[in-house]
Design a binder for these strands. Structure first.
Lengths: 263, 263
DNA sequence: TACCTATTTTTGTATGATGACTTTTGCAAT
DNA sequence: ATTGCAAAAGTCATCATACAAAAATAGGTA
C-alpha cells in the first residue's frame, strides 16, 4: 500500500494536476469537433446510447458531458427528439488568458457598465423603497451588515457589495431587474480585491468605508419607503463610483508619466 | 451500417415554450443562491445525496445541475472530498438561460419588462440627445420614417418599432445599452402582429398612429439635443405603453366576464 | 508525536427500468 | 391521391441501485 503523508488540507491548487473526469474529456472532444466545423448549426447528434457506445462509456457519462455543453450554449436537447447543435462560437471554458486579457483593457467597459447601472438601479432603488416587503428589507440590511463585517475583518468585500445591490433589485419584486443585474455580472463589481485592477487605494479602509456610507444612505431611504430619496442616494452612489473609476484612470496615467514602476 | 448524422431539420422553434428540465431549474436556483451571497468562495456544499434529498429529486438530477455549474466555472467537484465553490463572478452572456425563456404568453411579464425598459430607455434617450453624432441622428430618423411607411401600407410595424428604440440605444455610444436591450429582445415589442396577444385594437391605425406621435416627440427632443426633454418623452411613451397593456388586461377580463369567447 | 492502516465518507461510473415527449408509420375515410 | 388520426417506435428525462475510486477520518503502534 502506498502511503502518502498528505493529510494536507484541501486548499486546492486549482488548475494543477487532477485526473480529468470522463465526462469532461468527452465534452472537450465534442467541443473540438464542433469548433473544427464538423457539425453545423441545426445538426442532430447521434443518440445518447449511440454516443455511449462509440465512446465506450456509460450513458450517464454522455449525459453529463452533454449537460456541460448545453450549459455552454452549444447544444440543445429536446426530449423525444434528440440533441441538436445550436451555437458554436461561445466563450472558452475557463482557463482563459482571454479572460485576463479582457480585463486589462476593461476600465472603460466598467465605466459603460456603470452608466447602465445608473439607469437601472436608480429606478430599482425607488421601486424597492415603494414595494419591498419586510423580509426583503431585512435581506438588504443583512447584506449591508455583511459588507460591514467583512470590512472590519479586512476581508474582500466585492461579493458582499454585489449581494447588497442584488437584494435591492430583488425587492422591486420584478424578476427582470435581478436577471439583468445578474447578466451584467462581475463586470458590475468594481472593488473586489480579486479583481485584476485592484489597487491599494481600492483596498483601503477609508475607500470602502466611504462606499459603506453611501450604502447606508440607500438603505435608510429604502427602509423609510422614500422612493425619491432612494433614487437620489443610488444615483449619488453610482455616480461617485464612476468618478472613482475616472480617478483611477488618471492615477494610472500619472504614474506612467512620472515613470514610477514597481515591477 | 450508414451511421451518417442525418440533418433532420427540427422545427427549430428555438426559444418556444419548452418545459424546463429539473436539473436546469436546480442549477438556476443554486446559481442565484451563490450570486445572492449565501455561499462564499471555498465553501463546501452539502453532499449530492443531501442535495437530492432537500430538492426532492434523484441524485442524477443533482449531478447534472452540478455539472452545468462546473462548466460555468462556479463549482469544482473533488472525488471523495465534495463540491466546492471556486468562483462566482463568471460573466454570463446576456441572453442566458433565464432571459431566453419564452414569457411572451404572459402579459404580466411583459409589464415587468416594460418597467425595466422605462429605467433603461429614459436614460438612454437622455444620453442619446447629449451624445448622438449626425449619422446616429439620421439613423433614428430613418427608423422613425420606416415605421411610418409601414404604417401607411398597413404592414406589421413591430420590427420597425424595435429598430427605432434600438437606434436610440446605439446613439448613447455605450454598447451595453444596446446589448441589454437586445437581450430583452422581442418580448419588449408590444405591438407586433406576430405577437400572440395581438388584437384588433393593437393593429388599428389609430393605435399605431398614437405610438408614432410619441415617437415623434422623442425624435424631436433627441435632434434638438435636449436631454431632459428626451427623457420625459421616452418616459411618457413607455408609461403610455404600460397603460395600454393594463387596458388590454382589463379588456380581456371584461370579455371573459361577459362570456364572449373568441377562440 | 509521528506514521501507518483500516474504515467511512463522498464523488465517479455503470446498469436497468419507467415516464414523457416527438417523430414516424400505418390505416381509414374522403 | 390526399387528408386526418391513431398506433408505434424512437429518444430524452428521471429514478433507483450498485459498485469503484479517491479522499477524509479514526484508530492503533512505535
Amino acid at each position: 500500500m502506498t502511503t502518502h503523508l498528505n493529510t494536507a488540507p484541501p486548499p486546492a491548487n486549482l488548475n494543477s494536476s487532477r485526473r480529468q473526469k470522463l465526462s469532461e474529456r468527452i465534452a472537450g472532444s465534442l467541443r473540438q469537433d464542433f469548433l473544427s466545423g464538423q457539425f453545423s448549426v441545426g445538426h442532430k447528434l447521434p443518440t445518447e446510447s449511440q454516443l455511449a457506445l462509440s465512446f465506450g462509456v456509460s450513458r450517464t457519462v454522455i449525459r453529463e458531458a452533454i449537460a456541460a455543453l448545453v450549459a455552454d450554449g452549444m447544444l440543445e436537447t429536446r426530449q423525444g427528439a434528440g440533441i441538436f447543435v445550436i451555437g458554436l462560437q461561445r466563450h472558452q471554458p475557463l482557463d482563459g488568458p482571454i479572460l485576463r486579457q479582457d480585463r486589462s483593457s476593461n476600465i472603460s467597459h466598467a465605466l459603460n457598465v456603470l452608466e447602465v447601472r445608473i439607469a437601472l438601479e436608480t429606478e430599482s432603488a425607488a421601486l424597492a423603497a415603494a414595494r419591498r416587503n419586510p423580509s426583503q428589507e431585512a435581506q438588504i440590511q443583512e447584506n449591508f451588515f455583511e459588507f460591514d463585517r467583512l470590512l472590519q475583518l479586512g476581508k474582500p468585500t466585492g461579493q458582499a457589495d454585489f449581494a447588497f445591490h442584488r437584494s435591492i433589485a430583488e425587492a422591486t419584486n420584478n424578476p427582470f431587474y435581478v436577471e439583468v443585474l445578474d447578466a451584467l455580472g462581475e463586470r458590475t463589481i468594481p472593488c473586489d480585491v480579486n479583481s485584476p485592477h485592484a489597487t491599494e487605494e481600492v483596498l483601503s479602509f477609508a475607500y470602502q468605508a466611504g462606499l459603506q456610507r453611501e450604502h447606508l444612505a440607500i438603505l435608510n431611504a429604502i427602509s423609510a419607503g422614500d422612493a425619491a430619496c432612494a433614487r437620489d442616494a443610488m444615483r449619488a452612489h453610482l455616480s461617485a463610483s464612476q468618478e472613482r473609476y475616472r480617478e483611477r484612470l488618471r492615477d494610472r496615467r500619472t504614474r506612467y508619466q512620472s515613470g514610477v514602476e514597481t515591477t
